[in-house]
Design a protein around this nucleic acid. Structure first.
Lengths: 116, 116
DNA sequence: AAACTGTTCTAGTATTTATAGAACAGTTTG
DNA sequence: CAAACTGTTCTATAAATACTAGAACAGTTT
C-alpha cells in the first residue's frame, strides 16, 4: 500500500494522507484486516515528520476506519466496505460535475454542506 | 439571502461563507443576476471582520460564481446553473452515504480525491 | 453630492500545521 | 526471555494561515 503526498499542495499534509487512504479504501484497494504501513515508515519514505503521519492516522481512527494499538499498527476495520460500495456512485457524480466545469473544491464543499 | 456561520466550527469562517453560498446556489435559492449582501453588511450582522467576508467573496469570484465591482457588489453569474442541476444527484449520494453511516468529512474528502 | 460598493495597504494577534527529540508501554518476532 | 517493532505521550520550536483592526482609495448608484 502506497501513500502519496504533494508538498506543494495548499491542503495540509496530514489531510492529504487521510485523503489518500480514503481513496484507496473507496477503490477497493483496502480490505478489513489490512494494516497501514507503520507511521515511522511513512514518515521516513515521504520525508515528513512522524507526528504528522500519526495525526492523519488518528483522524482515520476517529472516523472508525482503523483500529490502532501500539506494537500492532493501524488495522483497517470493516468500516471500509461502505466506502467501496459508494465508489461507483461517487465516480458518476464526479464525472457529471466535471462536464459542467465544476471545481473539485466546489463539489466537495457542496456535498459536505448538503449533509447538514 | 442569508449567510450562516458557526464560530465553534473547526473549518475557517471564510470557508463556511463560501460553503453557505454554494449551498444556496445548489438549492436553487440563487439565480444569475442576484446580488450577494454587501461584505460590510455580512460582517456587521455576523460579528466578523470585513476582510474575512471579502476573502470568501474573492474565492467565489475566483470560482467564477460571482462578478465583483466596487459600488455594485457581488453579482451571481450564470455559473450557478450547473450547481442547481447537480443538486438532485448530490442529495441522492448524500442520502445513501448517510444510510451507510459515513461521516460528512469522509464523503467530501472522497469526492475531492476522486476528482484527480 | 452623498451614500454605497469592493480594493488596497499596513499591522498585530491567535490558531493551526509541521517539525524535533525523547521517553514510555504495549505487541510481535526470533 | 530478549530484541525489534508498534503507537502514545510529553515538551518545545518555527512557520504558515486565519482573523481582526483601522485607514484611505476608487468606482457605482441614488
Amino acid at each position: 500500500m502506497l501513500i502519496r503526498v504533494d508538498p506543494a499542495s495548499d491542503t495540509p499534509i496530514f489531510a492529504q494522507i487521510v485523503a489518500s487512504v480514503h481513496a484507496d479504501a473507496a477503490a477497493g484497494r483496502l480490505a478489513a484486516g489490512d494494516r497501514l504501513p507503520s507511521a515511522r515508515d511513512v514518515a521516513g519514505s515521504l520525508g515528513i515528520n512522524l507526528h504528522t503521519v500519526l495525526r492523519a492516522y488518528q483522524q482515520l481512527r476517529d472516523e472508525g476506519l482503523v483500529d490502532m494499538r501500539r506494537g500492532r499498527g493501524a488495522i483497517v476495520t470493516d468500516a471500509v466496505e461502505p466506502l467501496a460500495h459508494l465508489h461507483h456512485d461517487i465516480a458518476a457524480l464526479v464525472a457529471r460535475a466535471r462536464t459542467l466545469g465544476l471545481a473539485a473544491d466546489t463539489l466537495a464543499a457542496l456535498v459536505k454542506e448538503t449533509y447538514r
